[in-house]
């Protein structure tokens, strides 16, 4: 049973998708933790089938200002991977990484330096790479990823990009979402994996389902 029907995902399929999120995000979180040399924990991944109008609720509302780093996926699976952080959290992350700890408390209006933006892009690259490579070795599927595309804007506006891709095939989006954060919740964000419907079937099939 490898066909995935958006209207009737069974428990087994949910569990497997959640486990994929677990392994992928686990690796990504480890990579992040090594980079900032601090403990980063993550919650249990959620596999959610959402209507488009509910989509931006998962990251705390359509108007929340976030940094979204998007990768388009290729190879044996198609889709998108998005690494999303609160703007303020991402500034904390960049400050930790670049050792700018003396700087004043960032706010939504603080601008990134060019160095900061480039560091952030690279962080996105490394941890999404960790996510995807673990997914790839788990499933034995070849997964290639584009260069990172970054945008800093309202969550709803950023999520509209993957939503539109899903809109072409259905009225809902299926995504695997994991929230992570360090102990002080200083640096928190989300990994969102959004394969196309066919790719979900490919993933499930590769795992013998």
């Amino acid at each position: 049973m490898s066909e995935l029907d958006l209207n009737g995902i069974n428990n087994m399929q949910y569990d497997v998708l959640r486990e994929i999120g677990n392994i992928g995000a686990g690796n990504a979180t480890t990579a992040l933790s090594q980079m900032i040399n601090a403990r980063v924990s993550m919650n249990v991944p959620k596999v959610e089938l959402l209507e488009f109008k509910e989509l931006s609720d998962i990251v705390g509302g359509a108007e929340k200002i976030v940094v979204g780093i998007l990768f388009t996926l290729g190879g044996d699976i198609d889709g998108m991977m998005m690494f999303m952080m609160d703007k303020v959290a991402s500034m904390h992350l960049v400050n930790i990484l670049l050792g700018n700890l003396q700087q004043s408390e960032p706010t939504d209006d603080t601008e990134f330096s060019e160095m900061g933006l480039s560091a952030l892009n690279e962080i996105g690259n490394i941890i999404s790479g960790a996510y995807l490579s673990s997914l790839s070795s788990l499933t034995n599927l070849t997964i290639t990823s584009s260069i990172p595309y970054m945008a800093i804007d309202m969550a709803g506006a950023i999520l509209s990009v993957p939503a539109i891709e899903f809109g072409k095939i259905g009225d809902r989006a299926l995504l695997i979402e994991t929230e992570f954060g360090d102990m002080d919740n200083y640096v928190n964000g989300y990994f969102i994996l959004i394969p196309t419907l066919n790719s979900y079937s490919a993933i499930l099939k590769s795992l013998g389902l």
């Binding site: 931006s56 509302g61 359509a62 108007e63 804007d153 506006a157 999520l159 509209s160 539109i164």
Partner: peptide, 11 residues
Amino acid sequence: DVITTLGLGSC
């Protein structure tokens, strides 16, 4: 009343 939509991107 007022009608609104939040965070329009490519839509």
